[in-house]
Design a protein around this nucleic acid. Structure first.
Ligand SMILES: Nc1ccn([C@H]2C[C@H](O)[C@@H](COP(=O)(O)OP(=O)(O)OP(=O)(O)O)O2)c(=O)n1
Ligand SMILES: [Mg+2]
Length: 960
DNA sequence: ATCCTCCCCTAC
DNA sequence: TAAGGTAGGGGAGGAT
C-alpha cells in the first residue's frame, strides 16, 4: 500500500470530484423546450423572448422525436419520463435553431500563448495522499446555526407566483406535482414489502438466476411491474443473464439489458440502484468487472483483427470503450463537463439576447420609492445549491432527510473503502465529514453515515433548470459550475426598485426549490468576493447579505482558507511563515512585501486586497470568456503491460479531443502530454483500487505542424511526445493531453484547419468528406453518448473508433481525385489524355506504400530533397520514380509536415514547369502525385489542401 | 522585455 | 474494490 508520502503532503486533500455526461441532442431539445416553457410563464415578455432567441416554434421533425425518446430512457426514471410525456401533449414546439445556435456561440477568436516560461530540471511529483484529512478548513461547522433570512418565512406569496402557477406550462406543473409526491414519500400498499421499484418494469429474457418466476415475485412485492412481453417504450429494463441469445448491437434503441443481480442488489440496498453497472454487454463473455474486462480484453485482444495494411504506424485498435466506461462513472468528469456546458449556455444567451430585454417581471418585489436616495451599491449575487448531489438524492429518499448522508460509488458495505465522497449532507458535515473525503475516513468520523449512489442524469437536469431559471433574471451572469453562479443584479434591482436584495434572492430560491426540489443558498455583496463568502454564511438554505458598509467587519472574521484562490498549499505557506493564522484580520497585519515572496506577486497582491475586502472584480468578469484550452485526462484504471495498450489509450484520447475541439469549433496549435508514472519507491499495488498512487508527472509539449482539430494529427504528435518521455509501460498510471493555442475553426465548411493556410483560390467547396451518408440505428444510439449535436462527421468518426479500424488507406481508389472543377489550365485538356495510361502510371495507388519518414532516397533535409527532385525529374518518369516521389509526398502529408508539404509542392510544380528542369511527362505525373497527396490530406485532416490549386496564382505551367 | 516550456495551485 | 476531470491563473528560468 502506498502511504501518503511521509514527506510533506504535497497534494491537496482532494476536494474535487466529477461525474460524467455530455449534453446530447436529446438534452438540448429538452433544454430548449424547457426554456420555452419557462418563458411561457411570463406572458409579458414572451414575445420578446421568442424573438430574441429565435424561438420559432418549429415543427418537431421525425428525428426530434427519436431524440426525445432517447431522453426518455436516458433520463432519470421518474421525473423526466413524466415530463416528456407531458411535453408531447402540448404544442411542444422544438426549435433546432436554438440547438444549432447553442453550438455556434462557442466560436470566437482566441489564443495567444499562455504558458509561463522556463523548464525545470525536475519532474512534478504526484503524491498519493489519504484524502481529505489534510484539509481542516472546509469544515461545515455550525454554519447550520448561522443567521439566515428564513426560507419558508417570507416565501413569495406574491400573486406573481400564483399567476405563474396558473399559466405555467404543463411541464413544470407536472414536475412540481411529481416532486411533491416524491418528497412526501409513498407508503407501500398492502401486500408490498416496499415500493423501491415503483415505476419500474422488467421483462425477463431467457434463463436467469434467479429464474423469472422469482423475479416476477420480487418485482411485484417491491412495487415494480413484471411484463410477460417486452413493450417498447413501456418496459424499463430487460433482465438477462447472458447474451447467449441477445445481440447487443441489435438492440433497439432504448432497450436496456441488465443483469438480474440488479434486482437482488437493489432489494438488499433498499432502493433501486443505478443500472449502469449491471448492463449486460458483449464483454460479459470475458470477465466480470468493467475495468478488469477492459484489461483482460486488451491482453487477449484477438477480436480486433489487426489490419496490417498500409499505414502501419497508426494504432488501429482504438477502443473507445474504456474512456466511455470510465467517463460514465466519473463524477469529476461530469461536473467539469457540466460546468463547461453551462458556460456555453450562458455565452449563447448573451450573444443572442439583447441586454435590455429582461425576461422576468418582478414588479411585485419592488417598492414605490419616492426618491432614490439610497447610495448606489452593487448587488452581486452568488447562488450555490446546498450539497448538490445529496439534495438531488434526497428528493426521492425523504426518509434520509435529517441523517448524515454521503454520495459515493461505495455501497457502504465495507468500512475500509477508498471510494471518495462527492458530496455529503450538512448533518454529515457536522460530524466532520467533508466533500472529497474517502469513505473509510468519513466512517471514522461518522459511523452512521448513510451512502447513496450517484444520479448523473439528474444532476444534469437540475443544473440546466437552475441556469434556465436564473438566466431569466439577468444575463449579467457568470457560470462557475454546475451548481453555482454569480449574478449581477444591480440593474435588475434598480429597474424594479428593489431595495432589499434579500427579497429578490428569496424569489430565486423559491423558484429553484419549486422547480428542482433542491435548496439553494444565496450570498449577496458589492463584489463577487463578498458575495461568495456570504454564501457560506447563508448555507444551508438561506440568504446572507453583506452591505457595502459592513464589509470590513465581515471580512475580518472570515477564514483565510475560505478566500477563493487560497488552497491548502497557500495556507500552509502562510501558516508556516506567520505561525498559526486563521482569520483575515490576522493577515491584515502583514505587509504586501512579506506576502509576495511567499505566494508570488499576483497571488500576494490579490490576497492582500481580498483579506481587506477591497478586491474588485477583474475587468471582463461578466463578459463571455474565451476558452484557452481543451484537455482530456485519464488518471484512473491505467495498468498496461504492452506498449500497444498505451497507444490505444493515446488514440482514444486523441479522438476524444477531436470531439471536444469540434464541439467548441476550435483548432489546437499546441499539444501537451502529461504522463503519471509510478514513483520509483511507490508500491506497485496502489492503496486505491486502480488508482494512480504516488506518481511522478512528466510533461512534454509540441507545436503542431498547423492548427488542427484532427485526431490523427494530434495522435501522431502525442505518440512522439510519449516516446520522448518513454516511460515503462507497466509503471504508467495516468495520461493527460491538453490542447492549447486555440484558434477558431470558423472556416464554415471546413472540418479541419487544413485550408487555413490557403485562401482557396476557387470558390469550390474543398470539403468532400464532411457530409457523408446518413444515419442508421446504430448511429442514433451513439449520438446518445457522444452527444455531438448534428455533427455527422463526428459521429462517423466515433463509429470508426469502434470498428477494427480498417486502416483505410488514404490512397485507396482515390485515383486522381476527380473533383470536378479541380481542373484548370494546368491540367492537360481531357481530350489530350492518352487513351492508354502512360507507362509511368502506377498500376494502383496502393503501390505507393507509405514510408515511415518523409525522405527521398534516404535524404531528409530540404536542400537534399530538392537536389533529389532535380535529379529525378530530369529523367523520363518511370513507374518506380513516380512511386518514389508520390510516396515522399504522401508520407509527408500523412506525417503532418504540412508546411514542408507545401514547400515541396511548390518546388515540384516549379521544376515540372520548365523543359530545362524536367522531362515533359513529369508535368502530368506531378499533378497526379500532388492530387494523391491531397487525397491523403483530405483523408487525414478532413479537407484537401488544394496543393495544385493553391499554387495556381504562381502561374506555373508548361509553356514549352 | 517577452516568449516558451514545464511545472504548481486552485476550484467545482 | 473504484471510476483521482478539467480549466484557468500564475511562476521560474531559459531562449530569443
Ligand atoms: N471534491 C468534490 C467537490 C464537489 N463535488 C461535486 C459534488 C457537489 O455536490 C458538487 C458541488 O460542489 P460544492 O462545492 O458546491 O459542494 P456541495 O454543493 O456539495 O455543498 P455546498 O455547496 O452546500 O457546500 O460538486 C465533487 O464531486 N467532489
Ligand atoms: Mg453547492
Amino acid at each position: 500500500m502506498d502511504k501518503p508520502g511521509p514527506s510533506k503532503p504535497k497534494l491537496e486533500p482532494p476536494d474535487c470530484l466529477p461525474s460524467t455526461s455530455k449534453i446530447t441532442d436529446a438534452d438540448r431539445e429538452f433544454w430548449d423546450n424547457l426554456v420555452e416553457f419557462v418563458s411561457d410563464e411570463e406572458e409579458i415578455t414572451l414575445d420578446r423572448l421568442l424573438e430574441d432567441s429565435d424561438f420559432s416554434g418549429n415543427e418537431q421533425d421525425v428525428e426530434d422525436r427519436d431524440v426525445e425518446l432517447q431522453l426518455h430512457n436516458f433520463a432519470a426514471p421518474e421525473i423526466v419520463v413524466d415530463s416528456i410525456e407531458e411535453q408531447e401533449a402540448p404544442p411542444e414546439t422544438v426549435n433546432d435553431a436554438l440547438s444549432r445556435l447553442l453550438n455556434e456561440f462557442k466560436r470566437a477568436p482566441i489564443s495567444e500563448a499562455e504558458g509561463p516560461p522556463a523548464k525545470k530540471a525536475s519532474i512534478g511529483r504526484i503524491f498519493d495522499e489519504g484524502n481529505a484529512d489534510a484539509d481542516p478548513i472546509r469544515v461545515p461547522e455550525n454554519r447550520l446555526v448561522r443567521a439566515k433570512v428564513g426560507t419558508a418565512t417570507e416565501k413569495a406569496p406574491d400573486p406573481h407566483d400564483i399567476a405563474a402557477a396558473q399559466t405555467f406550462g404543463g411541464y413544470m406543473a407536472l414536475k412540481k406535482a411529481k416532486l411533491r409526491h416524491q418528497v412526501n414519500g409513498e407508503e407501500p400498499h398492502d401486500g408490498l414489502t416496499s415500493n423501491i421499484f415503483s415505476g419500474i418494469s422488467v421483462f425477463v429474457n431467457g434463463y436467469t438466476e434467479p429464474p423469472a418466476l422469482i423475479i416476477r415475485e420480487l418485482m411485484t412485492v417491491h412495487g415494480g411491474e413484471y411484463h410477460c412481453y417486452y413493450e417498447h417504450g413501456r418496459t424499463t429494463y430487460v433482465i438477462a443473464s447472458s447474451l447467449a441469445s441477445v445481440k447487443v448491437d441489435k438492440l433497439r434503441q432504448g432497450e436496456i439489458f441488465i443483469k438480474p443481480e440488479w434486482i437482488t442488489d437493489s432489494i438488499a440496498r433498499g432502493y433501486a440502484l443505478p443500472h449502469i453497472d449491471y448492463v449486460v454487454n458483449e464483454k460479459d463473455r470475458y470477465a466480470k468487472g468493467t475495468l478488469q474486462r477492459f484489461f483482460a480484453q486488451s491482453k487477449e485482444d484477438k477480436e480486433k483483427p489487426k489490419n496490417p495494411a498500409p499505414n502501419r504506424d497508426t494504432v488501429d485498435a482504438r477502443d473507445p470503450d474504456f474512456i466511455f466506461q470510465y467517463y460514465a462513472r466519473s463524477r469529476l468528469h461530469l461536473i467539469s463537463t457540466l460546468a463547461q456546458d453551462m458556460k456555453d449556455f450562458v455565452a449563447d444567451l448573451k450573444s443572442r439576447r439583447s441586454p435590455e430585454s429582461e425576461t422576468i417581471d418582478l414588479r411585485d418585489l419592488g417598492r414605490f420609492v419616492t426618491s432614490e436616495r439610497r447610495p448606489k451599491e452593487d448587488f452581486i449575487f452568488h447562488v450555490d445549491l446546498d450539497c448538490f448531489f445529496v439534495s438531488v438524492a434526497l428528493r426521492s429518499r425523504p426518509e434520509c432527510r435529517g441523517k448524515p448522508v454521503a454520495i459515493t460509488h461505495s455501497k457502504g458495505v465495507v468500512s475500509n473503502s477508498m471510494s471518495e465522497i462527492a458530496s455529503c449532507s450538512y448533518e454529515a458535515r457536522a460530524c466532520g465529514v467533508k466533500n472529497g473525503m474517502l469513505v473509510k475516513d468519513a466512517l471514522e468520523q461518522c459511523s452512521r453515515l448513510v451512502f447513496l449512489p450517484y444520479q448523473f442524469e439528474d444532476y444534469t437536469e437540475v443544473s440546466k433548470i437552475i441556469y434556465t431559471i436564473l438566466s431569466r433574471y439577468t444575463l449579467d451572469l457568470r457560470a462557475v459550475s454546475c451548481d453555482e453562479m454569480y449574478l449581477n443584479c444591480t440593474e435588475l434591482c434598480r429597474k424594479f426598485s428593489i431595495t432589499d436584495p434579500k427579497k429578490l434572492a428569496e424569489h430565486m430560491r423559491t423558484e429553484i426549490r419549486e422547480k428542482t426540489g433542491c435548496p439553494a443558498s444565496v450570498g449577496i455583496g458589492p463584489t463577487s468576493l463578498i458575495a461568495r463568502l456570504a454564501t457560506r454564511r447563508a448555507k444551508p438554505d438561506g440568504v446572507y447579505w453583506v452591505p457595502k458598509l459592513n464589509i470590513a467587519d465581515f471580512i475580518a472574521k472570515e477564514k483565510i482558507r475560505d478566500i477563493p484562490g487560497i488552497g491548502y498549499q497557500s495556507l500552509d505557506k502562510i501558516k508556516s511563515f506567520f505561525g498559526d493564522t486563521e482569520r483575515c484580520s490576522e493577515l491584515q497585519a502583514h505587509s504586501l512585501e512579506t506576502l509576495e515572496p511567499l505566494l508570488g506577486k499576483k497571488v500576494a497582491q490579490k490576497l492582500y486586497n481580498q483579506c481587506r475586502g477591497i478586491e474588485e472584480d477583474p475587468p471582463g468578469f461578466w463578459e463571455i470568456q474565451q476558452r484557452k484550452s481543451v484537455s482530456c485526462d485519464i488518471n484512473y484504471g491505467i495498468r498496461f503491460t504492452e506498449q500497444k495498450e498505451a497507444m490505444q489509450l493515446l488514440s482514444g484520447i486523441g479522438f476524444e479531443l477531436e470531439r471536444k475541439l469540434n464541439r467548441c469549433k476550435m483548432l489546437a496549435g499546441n499539444v501537451t502530454l502529461k504522463l503519471l508514472v509510478r514513483s520509483a519507491d511507490a508500491p506497485v499495488q496502489t492503496a486505491k483500487f486502480m488508482g494512480h498512487g504516488r506518481c511522478d508527472a512528466h510533461t512534454k509539449s509540441a507545436v503542431l505542424p498547423m492548427s488542427t482539430n484532427n485526431a490523427k494529427l494530434i495522435i501522431t504528435e502525442i505518440v512522439k511526445l510519449y516516446n520522448k518521455i518513454a516511460p515503462l509501460v507497466e509503471d504508467l498510471r495516468g495520461v493527460g493531453v491538453q490542447c492549447s493555442k486555440l484558434k477558431s475553426a470558423d472556416r464554415q465548411a471546413m472540418s479541419s484547419a487544413v485550408a487555413e493556410m490557403f485562401k482557396p483560390t476557387s470558390q469550390r467547396k474543398p470539403l468532400q468528406l464532411a457530409g457523408r451518408p446518413k444515419k442508421d440505428e446504430e448511429r442514433k444510439r451513439k449520438r446518445h453518448f457522444y452527444g455531438e449535436d448534428g455533427d455527422e462527421d463526428m459521429l462517423m468518426r466515433m463509429e470508426d473508433f469502434n470498428r477494427p479500424h480498417k486502416t483505410s488507406p488514404p490512397l485507396k481508389n482515390r485515383h486522381i481525385c476527380e473533383h470536378e472543377g479541380m481542373r484548370n489550365r494546368l491540367e492537360p485538356p481531357r481530350s489530350n489524355q492518352p487513351l492508354a495510361p502512360p507507362a509511368w502510371m502506377p498500376k494502383c495507388t496502393k503501390d505507393i506504400a507509405f514510408g515511415s519518414q518523409s525522405s527521398l532516397n534516404g535524404v531528409t533535409d530540404d536542400e537534399g530533397i530538392e537536389a533529389e527532385f532535380e535529379k529525378i525529374l530530369i529523367e523520363e518518369p518511370t513507374r518506380e520514380s513516380v512511386v518514389l516521389v508520390a510516396r515522399f509526398f504522401c508520407t509527408t502529408a500523412r506525417l503532418g509536415n504540412l508546411q514542408s508539404l507545401t514547400n515541396h509542392s511548390r518546388t515540384l510544380l516549379s521544376l515540372v514547369g520548365h523543359r530545362r528542369t524536367s522531362h515533359a511527362a513529369w508535368f502530368q505525373a506531378a499533378h497526379l502525385i500532388l492530387n494523391e497527396a491531397d487525397a491523403v490530406c483530405a483523408e487525414y485532416y478532413g479537407a484537401p489542401m488544394m496543393l495544385v490549386d493553391s499554387l495556381e496564382h504562381l502561374n506555373f505551367g508548361r509553356y514549352d
